[in-house]
Design a protein around this nucleic acid. Structure first.
Lengths: 158, 158
DNA sequence: CTATTTCGTCAACCACGTTGACTATCGTAC
DNA sequence: GTACGATAGTCAACGTGGTTGACGAAATAG
């Protein structure tokens, strides 16, 4: 299983995509930990990104991430507990609880983006810029429908 | 978040790799369900693959998958419950419980491989065979170290 | 004013992973 | 032949990230 089986070419591709993803994510978080964000877990970056600069609510966050509002609420709880998000009352609607990125969360987000840029540059150094662009273009073609879906029902606990 | 930000090229790559992986896995399991394997969950295929034709033990399976023997044992429990794996005593060592793929498990595995081959062929039809090969080669270069690691510590429940 | 919808939360549950502790068995060293 | 260390499997407790169902409080529509 550690090496591709030439008689089964199809099996290699999903594993390679997962391995590529994991490589980037692992490198990102190793570097984030070095830069003062050891608490930031892989999912958190995507959640912070989805909350955005304007803030949002748990229900809306769930819609953006493709998960239930309850799951979104629990994730927000964890991010609040580690200081990356904060909640505030909505003066215009007492049912809503606004979720906002804290300064620390914004710092983590900014560093994540910078680190991803550096990692992409590393890939471009090794493979050549046009190969990386080709990979992005091809994946966009084949996977556009799943681009924004972060939930993985049935995959990681469904 | 639904479209890549040109100012942040690095952010797109991991999301695209994840989306590509998910696309293949989702398509695989949609087709597997159609072919009589609705119970087969995404992780199961990798586990069956890791068990292999010769069978193994829970501890060895854990080592192959990079997870603890306890986690491997629980996963085997689930696969046994749905009929894809079976346990047997090792006549030569009463401590060991051999784990083997059942005929149904072998059928699922064979179909998975065939479906992956067809999906790869679809990608090759759309992108051109040399682009798919290039993607595989490039991912092998960048992600070889994570090729066989299926565990995602800190990612999906760590 | 009442009926409906929406937001957030609580509770129970599942999948998948962890660590620690424990039993039973094997292999070896004496 | 017995004592001992290493190994296989399991149990228990827990953490993370999901699910569905139920419910109260607040907004909105009639």
């Amino acid at each position: 299983m550690a090496t591709p089986d030439p008689a089964r070419p199809g099996f290699a591709l999903p594993l390679l995509l997962l391995a590529g993803f994991r490589t980037l994510i692992d490198d990102l978080h190793a570097e984030l930990a070095r830069e003062g964000h050891p608490e930031l877990r892989p999912l958190h970056g995507f959640v912070l990104q989805a909350v955005g600069a304007d803030g949002t609510t748990a229900t809306e966050l769930g819609q953006r991430l493709g998960i239930s509002k309850q799951a979104a609420g629990k994730t927000v709880d964890r991010l609040v507990a580690v200081g990356y998000l904060e909640r505030a009352d909505d003066p215009a609607d007492a049912r809503r609880r606004l979720v906002r990125v804290t300064p620390r969360g914004a710092d983590g987000l900014r560093r994540s983006a910078e680190i991803f840029d550096r990692l992409r540059a590393q890939w471009a150094d090794t493979l050549g810029p046009q190969r990386v662009t080709a990979m992005e273009d091809d994946l966009t073609t084949m996977a556009a429908a799943n681009w924004f879906r972060l939930d993985v029902p049935g995959w990681f606990g469904g």
